[in-house]
């Protein structure tokens, strides 16, 4: 692992940014720098899944990455070195619910695990889920909901996706602290999770079956 990867993975902001500036001044290829930074996020994701890192570490690593990108991106002439993706993942928090952290953590981990992620935000109407499913053609849809009175909204969102005839090529996972098998059945989702890491494992298994 490169020094930059280590510094970002260890969340050492000052040292990491100083090193990025030095690397840029020394004429280091910007894409190589970005690639080392992305590797660091993979390490952060692994540490999170191993319960060595926690949500603050994950969120802060995202901020750190954004700062690195803002230093490096103006120097990039051509795009390239994009990471290959293993599948497409659409995510959003269900209509009537504005909680975002659980959704953001899952989006982060899915990206780390090789998915191309499209995040619809919070309080997402079912028609927006349907249209995004048609346009983005995800392999997996993640619907987040923390409130206990959004079970019916999750069910209705999934029904709208079913009714539009666009579910056959994708799986649907629902996530939130108050969910369980009874809610999965009620909403007709393919799976549920109360833990971001376990949810990501489920999605990886689905991709393995494809």
């Amino acid at each position: 692992m490169s020094e930059l990867t280590d510094l970002i993975a260890d969340l050492k902001e000052q040292e990491a940014l100083k090193l990025v500036e030095e690397m840029l001044e020394a004429g280091k290829e910007p894409n190589t720098i970005l690639s080392a930074a992305r590797k660091a996020l993979d390490v952060v994701g692994e540490r999170f899944e191993q319960k060595y890192y926690f949500i603050p570490d994950l969120i802060f690593s995202g901020e750190l990455m954004a700062k690195v990108a803002s230093l490096v991106k103006p120097k990039i002439q051509t795009s390239g070195n994009e990471k290959e993706t293993i599948g497409k993942f659409l995510i959003g928090t269900v209509e009537g619910d504005i909680h975002d952290i659980g959704k953001d953590v899952v989006a982060f981990l899915m990206e780390m695990n090789g998915f191309e992620v499209k995040d619809l935000g919070v309080d997402v109407p079912k028609s927006v889920f349907v249209n995004a499913t048609i346009e983005f053609e995800p392999d997996i849809i993640g619907i987040s909901g923390l409130l206990t009175n959004v079970f019916d909204d999750i069910r209705d969102t999934i029904k709208a996706i079913d009714d539009a005839g666009i579910r056959k090529n994708c799986k649907i996972i629902i996530g939130g602290g108050q969910l369980d098998e009874s809610v999965r059945k009620h909403t007709n989702a393919d799976s549920f999770t109360t833990d971001a890491g376990i949810g990501v494992q489920q999605c990886l298994e689905w991709m393995g079956e494809k």
Binding site: T148, D180, V183
Partner: peptide, 9 residues
């Protein structure tokens, strides 16, 4: 006592 069980169980 899970609220999901109280709603759906």
């Amino acid at each position: 006592v899970p609220n999901s069980m109280l709603a759906n169980g």
